[in-house]
C-alpha cells in the first residue's frame, strides 16, 4: 500500500522518473505503452459492460441489476488505476535495469470476470422475476 502511494506521486512527476537510471531503448517504452493501452481498453470494456447490464437487462430485479452494473464499473476503475500504476513500475524497472514487476492482478481479474459471467448465466437461466 505504501508502495502504491509512492507510485501515485510518480504518476504526476515525470521528471523524477527521468532522473533514475538510463533511458531504455525507445521500443521498450513503446511496448510498455501498448501494454498500458491494452489494460486501459480492458478497463473501458468492463465499464461498457456496466452500462450494458444497466441498459439491456431492464427486466432484472433492481438489486441484481444495480449490483452487477456497479461491480463491473468498479472493476473497470480498479483496472484503469492499476494500468497506470503498472506502467509506471515497468518504466522505472526498465530505467534501473531491474526485472519487470510481477503481478497477481491478471489472475484476480480473470476470477472476477468468471464469477460475474457465471452470475449472469444463472440469472438468465433462473428467470427474470423482479
Amino acid at each position: 500500500m505504501i508502495e502504491f502511494v509512492r507510485n501515485v506521486r510518480l504518476w504526476f512527476a515525470p521528471e523524477e522518473i527521468r532522473e533514475e537510471g538510463g533511458t531504455p531503448d525507445y521500443r521498450f517504452s513503446l511496448a510498455n505503452e501498448r501494454t498500458f493501452l491494452a489494460w486501459l481498453r480492458t478497463a473501458l470494456a468492463l465499464i461498457g459492460g456496466g452500462f450494458a447490464v444497466d441498459q439491456f437487462l431492464p427486466d432484472l430485479r433492481w438489486g441484481w441489476r444495480v449490483g452487477l452494473a456497479l461491480a463491473l464499473l468498479g472493476a473497470g476503475v480498479l483496472c484503469a488505476l492499476r494500468a497506470v500504476n503498472h506502467w509506471v513500475r515497468c518504466e522505472r524497472a526498465m530505467r534501473r535495469g531491474e526485472d519487470l514487476p510481477v503481478s497477481r492482478f491478471p489472475a484476480a481479474l480473470g476470477l472476477v470476470v468468471a464469477v460475474v459471467a457465471i452470475a449472469m448465466v444463472a440469472l438468465v437461466l433462473l428467470g427474470w422475476e423482479g
Binding site: 465499464i47 484503469a80 488505476l81
Partner: peptide, 22 residues
C-alpha cells in the same frame, strides 16, 4: 516515452466515464 501526465489523463477519462455510469 509517453509522459506520465498523459497516461494519468487517459486513465482519468476512463474513471470519469465510470463515475457517469454510477
Amino acid at each position: 516515452a509517453l509522459a506520465p501526465r498523459a497516461a494519468v489523463t487517459a486513465v482519468l477519462c476512463a474513471v470519469a466515464l465510470a463515475v457517469c455510469g454510477v
